[in-house]
């Protein structure tokens, strides 16, 4: 068994990287895949909170990197709701310099044999933390929001990923508000596809259930009533190679030119 190693990244902070990792990890495990999620946001870890695992952390990624625990198994936290779902948490007291790309590659190499999926949650930014997160990955998911700065940063990240030989990253567009798109107050899916020109893995609508899920430590993918939950379940199926039609948000087609004008004053 050799795992698919996927880094989830965005450049800009706060667009939903960690939310995406938590939901994809949970969603894949719900489909009987063996999944480990690695939080590489050292010093600003959040993935454990979203998974409701904070109180169970003993060892972390840095302990594993520095061989301060017997094996990585000691640091892995097993989810209590789903079989086959594990978290390798980040250290909260160290910073990004505590880890090297070589250590990440070695840890992922060890994990590879035991899992179907390794999801790496990347920190924001394009510095060493990003480099470490990408180093062991062979695939990438770029998360962005329908806002000009987020799309700009996503574009930058796609360039950097391609320089690291991840030529075909997949796009997750998070926090889309169809009402705003309809009024042409928000970038549409088509506008973003125009710029980024990479394969769209899924569109997640803005959903207050996400906030509730985040605070409860229970990924929204468990919630059968939530639109965002449904979107993440669809993304999981697409990641597994199923052809799932995109959810309809009743949006009108491309209004790119108009937006461009509005946002750039010309």
């Amino acid at each position: 068994m050799a795992a698919r190693v996927i880094v989830v990244t965005s450049g800009k902070g706060g667009v939903g990287k960690t939310t995406t990792v938590a939901n994809l990890g949970t969603g894949l495990a719900l489909r009987q895949k063996k999944v480990v999620m690695i939080d590489t946001d050292i010093g600003l870890r959040n993935l454990d909170l979203l998974m409701g695992m904070e109180n169970r952390i003993c060892f972390d990624l840095i302990n594993v990197a520095e061989n301060e625990c017997r094996s990585f198994r000691q640091a892995l936290i097993k989810d209590k709701r789903v079989e086959n779902l594990f978290l390798l948490p980040a250290s909260q007291i160290k910073n990004k310099d505590a880890l090297t790309a070589e250590q990440m590659v070695r840890i992922v190499d060890e994990l590879k044999e035991e899992f179907d999926y390794i999801l790496i949650d990347s920190p924001a930014g394009i510095e060493s933390g990003f480099e470490n997160a990408v180093a062991p990955a062979t695939e990438a998911i770029v998360v962005t929001n329908p806002e000009v700065p987020a799309v700009r940063d996503a574009d930058r990240i796609i360039g950097l990923l391609q320089a690291k030989k991840i030529y075909e990253p997949l796009l997750v567009l998070n926090r889309l508000r169809s009402d705003m798109v309809k009024k042409r107050d928000m970038l549409d899916v088509d506008d973003i596809n125009d710029i980024l020109a990479i394969k769209l893995l899924g569109v997640v609508p803005e959903d207050e259930q996400i906030i509730i899920a985040t605070n409860k430590g229970e990924p929204v993918v468990f919630n059968q009533q939530s639109k965002a939950g449904e979107a993440f379940r669809n993304i999981v199926r697409r990641l597994e190679g199923e052809a799932v039609p995109f959810m309809s948000f009743n949006t009108e087609p491309g209004v790119f030119g108009r937006f461009w004008k509005m946002l750039h004053g010309r």
């Binding site: 700009r152 940063d153 574009d155 930058r156 796609i158 360039g159 950097l160 391609q162 710029i195 020109a197």
Partner: peptide, 24 residues
């Protein structure tokens, strides 16, 4: 392919891009 945000190409001569040049 696409020239993306943060990518800068310098050339002594002409440049032809088969793709887009994105902001940045």
């Amino acid at each position: 392919g696409t020239v993306r945000n943060g990518q800068r190409l310098e050339h002594n001569g002409d440049i032809v891009v088969k793709g887009d040049v994105n902001p940045g």
